[in-house]
Design a binder for these strands. Sequence first.
DNA 1: TCATTGTATCATTGTATCCTGATATATGTC
DNA 2: GACATATATCAGGATACAATGATACAATGA
Lengths: 108, 108
Amino acid sequence: MRLMTSAALDTLERFGTALADPIRRQILLRLMTGPGYPNDLLDEIDTTQPNLSNHLSCLRGCGLVTSQREGRRVRYELASPNLAHALSDLVSIELEIDSNHADLDRRS
Amino acid sequence: MRLMTSAALDTLERFGTALADPIRRQILLRLMTGPGYPNDLLDEIDTTQPNLSNHLSCLRGCGLVTSQREGRRVRYELASPNLAHALSDLVSIELEIDSNHADLDRRS
DNA sequence: TCATTGTATCATTGTATCCTGATATATGTC
DNA sequence: GACATATATCAGGATACAATGATACAATGA
């Protein structure tokens, strides 16, 4: 039962790392609609090519996306249908805004 | 349809912030089993009282937990059953380890 | 082979976030 | 009121992370 908790913490860490950055969140949201290529994502997401590449690499490292070379392009997609469903459920959750803190930063 | 995306991004940001720190992940995992009080959480999580308090405040700011004073204690719990289910689904997802990068940090 | 396109990596710099120790606030008890 | 317990806030220093510009690598076509 302790090992299960540790696995749960590891999974949460992967999601935490993946979701902690706005570029990565945009990428994930975009990949929920289907596979994508870095050069195309670059038209939809406002950042530089190296930065996008780096974030894609991060998402792959977290295990949330897979990549496969196709000629000189690389196709990125969500790692599993399971994951796609879970993300879809996540984004549809309505989180209340704590009115006592609405004027403060969400952090700290 | 653009507004929906923006709401989705906001929700993902809340989860990203909440899950980005190991203390917060432990708190969330613990609160999935039921409400908790800071002083009790302090026995289960290895950190200082101010730090724990700060992370609880962060989670409340993200909208993932609610707090209610009970005498001189404060009860913290997950914001909704919906959220509890979503988190439960999240932690049960099996993410493959990218063997090409298993030796590297998950980030960058 | 050379040029072009697409993607990845590297070093540097700036910033955000976390932790700590001290202190403040709140509630309850004597 | 004085004290104890429970929680929250603050200022600081340390660290990790993201962005940038330059460059390297990979694959295709002329």
